[in-house]
Amino acid sequence: MAVPITLEFSGGAELLFANQKKHSIELPGSQKWDVKSLLPWIRDNLLQERPELFMQGDTVRPGILVLVNDADWELMGELEYEIQPNDKIVFISTLHGG
């Protein structure tokens, strides 16, 4: 069963994704998806350039905030959070000038 979710990129992170802020995608396959497996999937399927600006090791680069359904991912289990259908996951970069 594919898992449909919405991804949002902002704060400058959208620049890595062809300037597209919202992405509606379906995660393929029947395995359980968690944030830890989502990240490399994003990197391999959506990221247009410079993966080192998005990921560091197996997590996001320091300076990128992750929200799951508008809540800080640290409250949801960070990498271990299991993704549910219709979840909204937001990546905000804090690294650009203001």
């Binding site: 704060g11 905030l65 800080d72 937001v90 970069s93 650009h96 203001g98």
Partner: peptide, 21 residues
């Protein structure tokens, strides 16, 4: 903290522009 500023802006839906020079 910068992170707090970003969270505040996000949740309050404040418009801002961010890109690399």
């Amino acid at each position: 903290y910068e992170k707090d500023i970003v969270m505040y802006a996000f949740h309050k839906n404040l418009t801002y522009f961010s890109t690399e020079c």
